[in-house]
Design a protein around this nucleic acid. Structure first.
Lengths: 203, 203
DNA sequence: ACCTGAACACCGTTCAAGT
DNA sequence: ACCTGAACACCGTTCAAGT
């Protein structure tokens, strides 16, 4: 039974969630750059223009995907911290962050890439992103023993985020040539080791 | 005199460098995602297919741009270090790196984005990138007082690169909501302050 | 050697129309 | 309310052909 034949009853009822699911699926298959509304619709056996009844445009569809991505990231970060001593919380959270990126590279690129960079910024996405980041800020606050609102915590969270995002982004975009057998965990360990080396340096 | 009329003498002689120049110009105007071979050619008053005589495809043209970008970055890093005390070299180099990114956001995205991520990797680009990174590694080696080949230096350089790239990438992609008047330098200062806060944390 | 034109297979998006 | 078809303005790329 072909995709086209699957549904001859003209309209679907719940096309919107199906579009999002299919988009997520294809995202990880073809990458964020080649994700196409026409292809998504075709896979669902629906006309490309049907998408425009449910979403204003591609940006809005993509924003929904990214928002879900940030919610998933938040969950990963929170889960990584359960039962972890404060002394190790920062490291554990960082690792969880980077692993998320490595395991969902296309989604990660969508969440932090140029597609959303200058779009209208759907408030669902805005909030989801803020909440994911809040986990990082909260963690830094706890570890430094200072208020989340303090200058120290805010700047340290920014630095931690930059560090983790930087490594994730560099790896996902294939910027360094790694030995074939170099694992995700090995890279993370190397970066954390490097961080502790850098500490000896005046910045 | 229109672009089309500028040259009725059929072939140009030096179209290749003109294509690269025009591409660089349009890159910073329209961004890496919307850079188009057809538009570049049209601006030069030449058919789109003319590009394919000089470059195998869009990737190859883009690789040339990125290679030039890495050479420019290398120069910026090297220049930033002249006459600077070793104690401040790391900070100065980091600042220069981030400023380069902020001042050439489209080029920076091209250099580190998804367009080149899985392309054939032109060796000119490969070398240019390696040489830019070598400046960072050299700087870390000097500051740590260890061999460039050492594990410590290599990992610390990776961490430093991740940190600087992360901040640059987050800002360029508009990931944090900054107050309107927040300057490039202020952001850099904030991140460096944050780095020094993070140092107090176990990683 | 260097460039063009027509053609192919894609895009996102709009808009009137169908159910 | 929900979806389609035709159409528009774009893409990158190939290939035979022109100068």
């Amino acid at each position: 039974m072909s995709n086209k034949a699957k549904r001859m009853n003209y309209h679907v009822g719940n096309l919107e969630p199906q579009l999002i699911d299919q988009a997520k699926k294809m995202l990880e298959e073809v990458g964020p750059d080649k994700l196409s509304i026409r292809a998504i619709a075709e896979q669902l056996g629906v006309s490309a223009t049907a998408v425009y009844y449910h979403f204003a445009n591609k940006d809005e569809l993509i924003s929904h995907l990214a928002a879900d991505g940030f919610m998933a990231l938040e969950k990963v970060l929170v889960d990584s911290q359960v039962g972890v001593d404060v002394r190790h919380k920062m490291q554990v959270t960082s690792k969880a962050y980077m692993l998320f990126a490595f395991e969902h590279p296309a989604m990660y690129q969508l969440m932090f890439g140029s597609q959303l960079a200058h779009s209208e910024m759907n408030s669902k996405l805005f909030i989801a992103r803020k909440q994911a980041y809040a986990v990082v800020e909260q963690c830094v606050a706890e570890v430094l023993g200072q208020d989340v609102q303090s200058k120290e915590v805010r700047s340290a969270a920014l630095a931690a985020w930059s560090f983790a995002h930087g490594l994730a982004s560099l790896r996902i975009h294939n910027v360094f040539q790694l030995p074939e057998q170099f694992s995700k965990d090995a890279l993370i360990e190397k970066a954390l080791l490097g961080f502790n080396q850098l500490v000896k340096v005046h910045m």
